[in-house]
Design a protein around this nucleic acid. Structure first.
Length: 106
DNA sequence: GTCGTGACTAGCC
DNA sequence: CGGCTAGCCACGA
């Protein structure tokens, strides 16, 4: 059921990994890719979330770049920052401050 | 089956 | 610290 969302196996894995990220914490594309079984597919991970219109369904705003940058967001990076701050994440400009402190490793 | 694109990463200057 | 290049994967046309 719910065939409205034709996601591939890879997407499913990526989304599933992101959903495991607790509130107030963040993860990186590389980590998610690793959890998906393709540690070098961080590129595809970004694609997966980008094409994925389920922004509020998946905490994609908790996924940032490896260097602590927010990266991007299907609804607008601005929104991503607002959401992170709301969850208790310190964000400055387009980067996470205590990135390593709230970074969640799988 | 082939080409181009993208919410990336790591290395180098 | 900042900017550029090359390499990587999956998806759509």
């Amino acid at each position: 059921m719910a065939k409205e969302f034709m996601l591939t196996n890879f997407q499913e894995k990526v989304l599933s990994a992101i959903k495991k990220i607790p509130k107030g914490k963040v993860s990186t594309y590389a980590l998610v890719a690793r959890g998906a079984g393709k540690p070098k597919a961080f590129r595809a991970v970004g694609n997966a979330l980008h094409i994925n219109p389920y922004a509020p369904v998946f905490p994609c705003h908790r996924v940032v770049k490896s260097d602590g940058s927010l990266g991007g967001y299907a609804g607008g990076v601005k929104k991503k920052i607002a959401l992170l701050k709301k969850e208790g994440v310190s964000v400055k400009g387009n980067k996470v401050m205590n990135f390593h402190e709230i970074l969640m490793r799988f």
